[in-house]
Each structure stands twice: as C-alpha cells, then as structure tokens.
C-alpha cells in the first residue's frame, strides 16, 4: 500500500484551516462570549489525542488478521 502523506488534500485542508482562522476575526454575530479559533483548537487537540490513543491501542492489541484462524 502507498503509505505516503497525500500532498493535495493536505494543502487543501491547511489553506482552508488558515482561511477559517481569518474568518473567525470577522465581526459576525456570536451568542455569548467568543474565543477566536476555539473550535480549531478543540479539533486539533482532541483529534490529535485520539490519533495518539489509536496508535497506542493498535500497538497494544493489534494482531495479524489471521489471529483467530490460527
């Protein structure tokens, strides 16, 4: 399997995220107090933690696919 990081999707997502950071500075209407880029931070930290946890779980309980057939 091709295990490289796909370039085009990464560039697209990075540019779109940067634009969203900028968009958050626009004076649109918020209900209640607003922390700019709060959701981007939550997404990065939360999903990063999930990826890390998934890698650890994979390392702990990952087995060959014929594990139950052997």
């Amino acid at each position: 399997m091709d295990n490289r990081v796909p370039r085009k999707p990464v560039i697209f997502c990075a540019v779109a995220t940067a634009l969203l950071v900028l968009a958050d500075l626009l004076p649109y209407h918020h209900e209640g107090p607003h922390l700019p880029s709060l959701y981007i931070g939550i997404s990065f930290i939360g999903c990063g933690a999930l990826i890390l946890l998934a890698i650890i779980i994979g390392w702990l309980v990952g087995r060959r696919e014929d594990f139950y057939e052997r």
Binding site: R4, T17, I40, F44, C47, I51, G62, R63, R64, E65
Partner: peptide
C-alpha cells in the same frame, strides 16, 4: 467547518501511521 477541516488535516498527515495493513484490533 473549524471542527472538520483541522481534523481532516490531521487525518491526512497521520495517514502513514494509522493505516495498518493485514492487522486487526483485539476487542
């Protein structure tokens, strides 16, 4: 969109780490 796009960015960056071939996770 602020939730989804950074998550997608992380997904693509971490793709080589999170794509085990011929592996299952015990449950």
């Amino acid at each position: 969109l602020q939730l989804l796009l950074p998550a997608a960015l992380l997904f693509f960056i971490s793709l080589p780490l999170t794509t085990p071939v011929g592996q299952i996770q015990l449950d």
